Amino acid sequence: MEKYKARLEEIKSILNQDSIDVNKLRKLSSFSCPNEGGLRSLIWKILLNYLPSDRKKWPELLKRRRNEYRDFVRDMIIRPGYKENENCELDHPLNSNPSSEWSSYFKDNEVLVQIDKDVRRLCPDLFFFQKPTEFPCEEIKNAADAERYQSLRKRVATTQLKADEVCKNRLGITNFKSDPKKFKEEQNEYSYLPIGQEAHWEIVERILFIYAKLNPGCSYVQGMNEVVGPIYFIFANDPDIEWRRHAEADCFFCFNNLMGLEGVRENFELVLDNTQLGIASNMKKLYDMVKANDVAVYNVLEKQSLKPEFFAFRWITLLLSQEFKLPEVISLWDVLFSDSKTLDFLIHVCCAMILIQRDQLLSGDFSSNIKTLQNYPNNVDIMHIVDKAKHLRKK
């Protein structure tokens, strides 16, 4: 307890300096960040390179970034058809011009529907994401802008209705067949809040949709919701109301920076699977590390054909967000974010997880071992795994 208090005071002292010693902050945070007074929220913003070490630059940077994000919302969530094209002709849904905003709108709907399915199920054991946010999108909340700005949840509902079975009658007239009961059940799986309110999962949906729009090469890949979720959770629960007010914008840029770290985004890009940057390469690094540290465990994995795709694909891609409960994931991410080589240390953590289950793996058959790795035992302390990973790195 005394060591914790001393570390807490040292971190507070660092954060209060005009010029923050980021290297020292990383070192102290590698033992897990304290959360008193919203310190973790602030530390993550620094470790994810959102806030610079010079505190004097914060006000201007935050104002610029938050305004930039609001512009993204206005430009990318706005309903098409309200802008005019270069020839001053009103755009319309049947416009075949590639530059038509309606054309982009329909293409984006495919991505949006997938995002919607994923975020509505975010952290099902935690009610937080179903609760209304204090700060819904101003454009959507404001009745005066209701005709210009369409909430994503309405857009998804409209898209799903229009995607119902299409058939033609004898006269060649197109008819739409839908199953109202099935559609209603799907929409009510998670009840929508009243108009003017937004649930936290809807905020995450907007973040991911804008990210997909700005990054067409990667777009949205299933699982990104599990990566952005914990970051938003920390920011949206900051005790400082001003930090909470801008949790959405701040989370967007921190998520963007996290995806920009070496190797993190590449894990989501299938085209890189067979390169030195893709997820396949990282899974091979993991198994090579296991072999170098415990050949007996490696031989079992090989003999039983326990391929890393069966479990390590999810571990590495989702930064272990699905293997532990949220409080443990947050503590683990304190350590990962504090490391200058996040992905490298993540692979060491994954190796530690395998080696800690050594006795179970050596005595188990394929069925029991795959169960152990796909449903990692919850009786292992996360910091024990971190300590083991640090020891492996030093070897």
Rank of each mutant, 00 (worst) to 15 (best):
I14G: 07
L193N: 00
S32G: 12
I316Q: 05
F366W: 11
S191T: 10
D387R: 11
L25A: 05
V228I: 10
W315D: 05
D125L: 09
G217D: 11
Q17S: 15
S13E: 10
V300Q: 15
E248H: 02
A143W: 06
L208N: 03
L112Y: 04
Y105P: 12
P194K: 14
G81P: 08
C351M: 08
K325V: 10
N274M: 12
W333K: 04
L39F: 00
D164I: 05
D294N: 13
I210Q: 09
K45M: 03
V335E: 02
E147D: 13
L112V: 08
E186T: 13
S96M: 13
L361Y: 04
W201A: 00
S305M: 12
T159N: 11
R74E: 12
R66F: 00
A236T: 01
I78S: 10
K131M: 13
F337L: 05
P59T: 07
E302M: 13
K83T: 15
V295K: 11
K141C: 04
F313L: 12
G172Q: 08
N97T: 06
N293W: 03
R265K: 13
P327M: 03
V166G: 12
D18T: 14
N16Q: 15
F209T: 04
G196A: 06
L62P: 00
N35P: 01
A352M: 03
F72A: 10
G217M: 03
E2H: 08
E309T: 14
R70K: 11
L42N: 02
E139T: 10
I195L: 15
D294C: 11
